[in-house]
């Protein structure tokens, strides 16, 4: 009896160690896939685009918002970005400047044109809706690899294409999510779909990415993003237009003075 239990114990220990190893293995495989996916946006230098946001309520009524966006790649740190609202008219000229950081919380400033006021805002409040849409600021901000921990789940076809499925867990305690499940195609390593799980681990939203195009021979950019909220049945579509890379932007275009000029 004693022998058997020792054998059993040894067997269990091996299983346990093996699962630990495979967990570590899943983690490194997940990270590897995330790094490959991130390579698709690396070296973009700077970009500009117009964005159209279509908000659909549960009755199917659609309203449209327009904005302009500028981004600048920062060596060794997160991107700088400037979003300026164009419509609806009451928020025209309102702008958000953010400096994303790999290992600390982002710096964010809001410009209110009616008061000519720049207001520093707490970026911890990023889990709230962005402009009444189903996106949060967190969803739209720079998705640095360092901001998550990863786990490889499985391979699966999506729309007839083979995909890696990984789980990523936000490291920021102020994230609105406990985890995200990400579909990344095995051919070009482009994010195809993200399932967002809220703070109670409820599957709150699903986002899809489409219309990928290659720029500068290496940068892949989706031209259409869509997110569906399963709780309130609302949908937001984000369409990117006039996408341009390497437009000659510099730090100067992301300064306090340029924020005051943005429109």
């Amino acid at each position: 009896m004693k022998n058997i239990s020792i054998k059993k114990l040894a067997f269990l220990a091996i299983i346990f160690l093996y699962s630990l190893l495979s967990l570590a293995d899943d983690a490194s495989k997940g990270l590897e896939i995330a790094i490959l996916a991130d390579k698709n946006t690396e070296g973009f230098i700077d970009s500009q685009s117009s964005m159209e946001m279509q908000l659909t309520n549960r009755k199917g009524n659609v309203v449209t918002r327009e904005m302009k966006s500028k981004r600048l790649e920062v060596a060794g740190d997160g991107d700088k970005s400037l979003i300026v609202f164009e419509s609806p008219r009451d928020v025209k000229g309102v702008a958000i400047l953010s400096f994303s950081h790999k290992n600390s919380s982002d710096d964010q400033w809001l410009y209110l044109p009616a008061l000519k006021r720049i207001k520093r805002i707490a970026s911890k409040n990023k889990s709230g809706p962005f402009l009444g849409s189903e996106y949060t600021f967190e969803d739209l901000s720079s998705q640095e690899v360092e901001k998550f921990s990863y786990r490889f789940l499985r391979d699966e076809d999506l729309n007839g294409q083979p995909n890696h499925i990984i789980e990523r867990i936000p490291l920021d305690p102020y994230s609105g999510y406990t985890k995200q499940i990400v579909w990344i195609d095995t051919q070009n390593y482009l994010i195809q779909k993200v399932e967002y799980y809220d703070r109670k681990s409820f599957h709150l939203k699903t986002g899809t990415f489409s219309g990928y195009k290659k720029y500068l021979d290496k940068i892949w950019q989706a031209s259409r993003m869509e997110i569906i909220n399963h709780q309130n049945k609302k949908k937001t579509v984000l369409i990117f237009k006039d996408i341009a890379f390497k437009t000659g932007l510099s730090d100067k275009d992301f300064s306090q003075n340029s924020l005051k000029r943005s429109r």
């Binding site: 520093r120 805002i121 707490a122 970026s123 911890k124 409040n125 102020y174």
Partner: peptide, 8 residues
């Protein structure tokens, strides 16, 4: 102005 967590 000092930002600390969600406070300003």
């Amino acid at each position: 102005l000092y930002i600390i967590e969600g406070w300003a």
